Structure formats: structure tokens, C-alpha cells
Amino acid sequence: MTYHHGNLRKALLDRAAHVIAEQGIESLSLRALARDLGVSHAAPSRHFADKAQLLQALASEGDKQFIDYIFAAAEAAGDNPLERYAAMGKAYIRFSLEFPAYYKTISHPDVMAHADAALRATGEQRRAIIHDAARAAQAAGWLPDEATDDVVIFSIATVHGVAGMLTDSLHGPKHASRDTDKLIENMVRLIIDPAHPQKSFPGKTGKARK
């Protein structure tokens, strides 16, 4: 891999994304990145003090890309809040498949546990967008008596679990022969079915929305 003078920071992030996608976060090291890019082992320190700082930068960029991705999916779905929320759920899973490095970074517990201000800000923005979309879907008839926090937790847990199964080495190969688009459609339909919103998420009723 080559890079133009003065663009080492981007080259480090690009190479880090490639390593994470192929080998996982645990295989990442600044020294190895420097070797791969043909620079001295001290060169990355001009941009990142350590691996944690590089991961935070990559996660911040990943969060921005993720927000744009799910928002674009919602916009493409039209004005129906139920369709928009379902589209966001499908986009969540597809993002993990199309941008595995970003997804693995923003969902890694160690990265989020040491998040800097920039990463915390994009994380809060992401959560606010999902909660707002869930509230709009509830106002349109989807599980109106459930607590919004509960339906968001259930929604994220489901799509995160599906994404994990499709992207990890243990479960991914088992589903390789399946129609991925159809699988994603079916999984999200179990969360929210725009055609039959009251049949989704068969939980308890009577809770006040938060």
C-alpha cells in the first residue's frame, strides 16, 4: 500500500480498517501498520499516541458513516414511520456486511469503554436517531403501549445478533448458502411488520413510553 506525503493519518486508518475486517481488532498494532506502510515504527505516533486512540478515530468515522447509512435507508423508505424504522433495522445489518471494519470497531466493548468526547458524541447522535424513529413508529401504531426504551433494546439486540451471526467465523459459514436479503427481511419483519404492526414483538402491554 502506498500513500501521498502528508496523508499518513488516512493511510493508517485505511490500513487499520483492512486489518480489522480481515483479522479482527485484536490483531491490530501500530508497529505492524507502520511496517505494512513502509514507514518507521515511530511514524504513527505523530498521529495516534497508541492503538486506543487510532481505534477511537476509526470508530468516530464509523459512527458517522453508520448514521448516514441508516438515515439514507430511512429516507429511501418514504414517509411511513413503520417502513422507515424497518428500513433502519435492515440497514443496520447490511452495514455490518458492507463495512465490517467500521462495524466491528463501533461495536467493540473495549473501544466504547474508553471512548473520547468525539466518539461519545457520535454514539449519542446514533442512539437519538434510533429512539426518535422508534417513537414515531409507535405513534403510527407499532406497540404503542410498550416502553420505547424496551422496544429499542429488543430491536438493537435482534439486529445486532443477526449481524454478529452473519459476520463471525462460527455462524457465518452456516448461512452462506441462504439468500441474505431475504434473511434480513425476515429477521426485521419479526421486530416490526409495517403491514401488521401489532403482531410484532409480542411482549407485555400497559407500560408507559419513555
Rank of each mutant, 00 (worst) to 15 (best):
R35Y: 04
F48E: 08
I70F: 05
R35M: 08
D63G: 08
Q56S: 14
D50K: 08
A43H: 10
E83L: 12
A76K: 15
I70H: 03
Q65D: 11
A59H: 05
L54F: 11
R46P: 01
D63I: 01
L55T: 10
A73Y: 08
L54Y: 13
G38E: 12
A42P: 00
G78M: 07
Q53H: 14
A52Y: 02
H41K: 10
D36E: 15
H47K: 05
H41F: 05
H41M: 06
R84C: 03
A52R: 13
L58F: 11
F66N: 01
E83K: 14
D79L: 09
A86F: 01
D50Q: 09
P44D: 07
F71R: 14
A42Q: 13
V39D: 09
R35G: 06
A49Y: 03
K64Q: 14
A73I: 00
A43K: 05
H41N: 09
G62Q: 08
D63F: 15
L55C: 11
S60T: 15
A74K: 03
A49D: 13
A86E: 11
Y85T: 01
L58H: 15
A77L: 04
Q53V: 13
A77N: 01
L82H: 05
L55K: 06
G38W: 07
A74C: 02
L37R: 09
A72I: 00
D63E: 13
D50I: 09
S40C: 03
A49Q: 13
A43F: 00
A42T: 15
A86T: 00
L54M: 12
D36K: 03
A43I: 04
S45T: 12
N80I: 00
S60M: 04
F71A: 12
S45A: 14
A57S: 13
Y69Q: 02
L55E: 10
A59K: 01
S40R: 02
D68Y: 03
